[in-house]
Computed example of a mutant assay.
Amino acid sequence: MSTMNPLSPEALLAAPKVLLHDHLDGGLRPRTVIELADACGHEGLPTADPAELGAWFRDNADSGSLVRYLEGFAHTCGVMQDEAALVRVAAEAAQDLADDGVAYAEIRYAPELFTDRGLRLEQVVEAVNEGFRQGEAASGNRIRVNALLCAMRQNDGWQRIADLVVRYRDAGVVGFDIAGPEAGFPATRELPAFEYLREQNAHFTVHAGEADGLESIHRAVQRCGAERLGHGVRIIDDVDGDQVGRLAAYVRDRRIALEMCPTSNVHTGAFASIAEHPVKRLADLGFRVTLNTDNRLMSDCSLTGEFAAVVREFDFGWDDLRTFTVNAAKAAFLPLDERRALIQDVVEPGYAALKG
Rank of each mutant, 00 (worst) to 15 (best):
D49A: 12
S216N: 13
A283E: 02
C261M: 10
K280N: 15
A93K: 00
Q159N: 03
A329W: 00
G225T: 12
S273V: 04
L13P: 05
R117G: 00
F324A: 05
L121T: 10
L303E: 04
R339K: 14
A110Q: 04
A147W: 01
I343H: 04
G350D: 00
D300R: 13
G41E: 02
A91W: 03
T76C: 13
F333K: 08
E71D: 15
A39C: 02
E130R: 15
E130D: 10
D294I: 07
Q200S: 08
R234C: 12
G118C: 01
L24V: 06
G230D: 02
A332S: 15
V173F: 09
A202Y: 12
H277T: 13
I256W: 13
R312M: 00
G213R: 07
P192A: 07
I235C: 07
F57Y: 13
D319E: 13
E215L: 12
N327D: 02
M260I: 14
S273D: 02
D170K: 13
Y351Q: 11
V67G: 04
A248C: 10
G72L: 01
G27Y: 04
A211G: 12
R340Q: 14
D177W: 08
V87R: 14
D59R: 14
R189C: 10
G26L: 03
L12F: 10
F132S: 06
D320R: 12
T325N: 09
R153A: 09
T325L: 00
G54W: 02
D163I: 08
A171I: 00
N295I: 06
A61K: 03
V145W: 01
R288F: 03
R120I: 00
V89T: 12
F176R: 04
A85F: 07
V311Q: 03
A329E: 00
G157S: 05
R254H: 15
A220H: 05
Q222K: 11
D242A: 13
T3S: 12
K330G: 02
L191I: 12
L121Y: 11
F287H: 07
G135M: 05
D237T: 09
A249K: 14
Y168I: 00
R255S: 15
R133D: 06
I256C: 13
G225L: 05
D238L: 08
G44A: 05
D240Q: 15
I161G: 03
V145Q: 01
C150H: 01
L191F: 06
D300M: 03
A127R: 01
